[in-house]
């Protein structure tokens, strides 16, 4: 923050739209009164909390972000099937293990998204991020090939995220 930021009437347009939609969904209605109330809240609350914002990298390619979202949604369903089979199957054959994945992205938001994606997708849970944000430690339920796992995480999830946020 070098100079005092310029005053803007709608400082956070995305968050305002989100607030509007969530208010209407919470009340499950499209009545005129509620639309007016939602618009008032979506207009006032961002004005009040604007100063608390942390600068975050913005989404450069929305279409790619949508594609990434659909990919993750599909992977969640596959992951659930795989984990269900593993849980109900024999426990003796399972080979759990920890893996350190080197990170190429270094901002907070992309790392958070990557860790969440890793947690929701096949057989892996993110455990920790090293203090210098260069390593992501994950635990795999059935670790067969460590290099293949690292490679698939880097190409399937990290590369699109890197492209989406342009960093």
């Amino acid at each position: 923050m070098d100079a005092k930021p310029r005053f803007r009437l709608v400082p956070m347009p995305v968050q305002s739209a989100l607030l509007f939609v969530v208010w209407l969904l919470m009340n499950n209605t499209l009545a005129v009164g509620h639309i007016f109330l939602a618009a008032t809240l979506a207009f006032t609350i961002p004005l009040l909390v604007n100063g608390l914002q942390n600068p975050q990298p913005t989404v450069r390619k929305p279409l790619l972000a949508l594609r990434y979202f659909l990919l993750v949604l599909m992977d969640i369903v596959i992951a659930n099937m795989q984990v269900a089979v593993l849980i109900l199957g024999p426990l003796k054959k399972m080979q759990p293990g920890f893996v350190a994945v080197p990170l190429d992205i270094n901002q907070n938001l992309p790392i958070t998204l990557l860790a969440s994606t890793v947690s929701l997708t096949p057989g892996t849970v993110s455990c920790d991020v090293s203090e210098d944000k260069r390593w992501l430690y994950i635990h795999a339920l059935n670790l067969v090939d460590e290099q293949a796992l690292i490679h698939s995480i880097k190409t399937r999830y990290e590369a699109p995220l890197k492209e989406i946020f342009g960093c």
């Binding site: 759990p96 350190a100 080197p102 090293s130 430690y137």
Partner: peptide
């Protein structure tokens, strides 16, 4: 029988980067 003991130790040690052995992995990974 958990594999990847050095990664586990590195994560337990307070999130410092792992030792040289894993840096070779990093080069392979990139």
């Amino acid at each position: 029988r958990t594999q990847g003991v050095e990664a586990h130790k590195a994560a337990t040690a307070g999130g410092n980067p792992p030792a040289k052995a894993d840096l070779v992995n990093k080069q392979k990974g990139s």
